[in-house]
Amino acid sequence: MTEFIEKIGKASMNATATFRDILFFAFTILARIFQKKTYNSAMKMVLVNQIYFTSVQILPLFTVLSIILGSLLIGIVLQIIKNLGLAEYLGRILMGLVVTEISPFVTVLLVALRSSSAMNAEIAVMKVNKELRTLDTYNIDVIDYLFVPRIINGVVSVLLLSALFSILALTSGMIFSKLIFGMSFDVYTNVLLKSADIYDIDIYLIKCCIFGFFITLIPIRSGLSASDDLTSIPIAVLQGMVKVFIAIIFIEVLSLILISL
């Protein structure tokens, strides 16, 4: 019994320590993001490369996915509200569900699966390979050179890709609703405009930024926790991705609470 309680206590202490550690790391990164000296030529090059790998390379797949998923989602929503006689809620459902919920969620999952895991492994490998020590030897701050561009990339990529998803989904939904349900473009646009709220869009943009920030920060922090041993790489990746998943759920719940206020 005592052992069991001890285990719970240990787990709680670990969770608290991780949470505190991530928050502290987040504040350090945030402080660096707002420092002018962080933005040197080397860092900018890393940032461009990161955006290229995270957003541009994924673009063809992402565009197709947005169009298919958007049409499908809007088709389902239209069918359901038509059957239930809730046509007047179409705008609210589309804006509330597709734009503010589904699009950041799908984007963040895609980016996390593809880029966060890669970043986690990359940092862990650099640590094991002593490449981080090399940077240190040449007086290159790893936070400025490696972490800040990756995290800014996370924010920019999630924000832009999510907005792109929303725009593509709503546009394909417009064509879909015209072809299948005979809904005119004007009616569709008016319904959406009527339900769109600047406050909701603000929350949506902030949510995307927070998502982007944490789904890159957590894997980086986790990658850093790898030891000098090669076998610590998969462990660091695994732990990092679990934390990313928890963070996604946590932010999603928080944003829902914030929107409902």
Binding site: N49, I51, Y52, V56, L160, A163
Partner: peptide, 16 residues
């Protein structure tokens, strides 16, 4: 790479 990234950022930002 720079051109592609620039194009992506500009187009999506303009859209938003």
């Amino acid at each position: 790479t720079e051109f592609k990234v620039g194009l992506f950022v500009v187009i999506t930002s303009v859209l938003i």
